[in-house]
């Protein structure tokens, strides 16, 4: 019976207290990011969005699959406005004087780099958050069709912080603060 076989862990059972992470704790020191008992870590950008500073989250467009289909002109032609723009809440956009279709400058507070994007003013996003679809290939001259459309190139927006280098494989790409201004 499969459930009678021991799991391949030191205890043979499902572990919620990870011995591996305990080993790292003893070497690298205590840190909530690698607590042996999974812990809630407050997001790096918690409660820091105000004024023209927003949380930047990103997602995928249903009509493209990463760079694999980003240059397909038929798929680009059926993409909606929201698939290649920066979603911004209607009330916050009115406060900042941003209208639907305006060009906006998005500056990452983490890296200091900026990009331009088209604003999509909608009620479908949180007031403290802007959303974008990562702009696959829009910076490459060889992608002749994708070059025309633009999301926010996420590679300019995030970086791996030094205290994460030791262990974490992920770059916390949803924990970014950006300043949004009219371009």
């Amino acid at each position: 019976m499969p459930y009678k076989k021991p799991l391949q862990t030191p205890t043979g059972k499902v572990e919620i207290y990870s011995m591996k992470l305990l080993g790292i704790t003893s070497k690298a020191g205590k840190n909530p990011n690698w607590d042996p008992l999974p812990d809630w870590v407050p997001p790096r950008v918690f409660n820091k969005a105000s004024g023209n500073v927003f949380y930047l989250t990103y997602g995928r467009s249903p009509v493209t699959s990463h760079t694999h289909t980003s240059d397909n002109d038929l798929l680009i032609s059926i993409a909606r406005k929201g698939h290649y723009s920066l979603w911004i809440n209607a009330k916050r956009a009115a406060e900042l004087g941003i209208k639907d279709g305006d060009l906006v400058k998005v500056t990452s507070l983490a890296t200091g780099k900026s990009a331009t994007a088209v604003a999509f003013v909608t009620e479908g996003v949180r007031p403290d958050t802007v959303f974008t679809v990562s702009g696959w290939g829009i910076e490459s001259d060889r992608l002749t069709n994708a070059k025309k459309v633009g999301g926010v190139p996420m590679n300019r927006m995030w970086k791996i912080f030094e205290d994460q280098y030791k262990l974490l494989p992920n770059a916390l790409m949803q924990e970014i603060l950006v300043r949004v201004e009219k371009a």
Partner: peptide
């Protein structure tokens, strides 16, 4: 309807519309 646009793409290719110009 989830708004994926598959119907638009299928129609364009089946019926040879001028989709490049919208």
């Amino acid at each position: 309807c989830i708004g994926c646009g598959a119907c638009i793409a299928a129609c364009d290719l089946e019926n040879d519309t001028e989709w490049r110009d919208g």
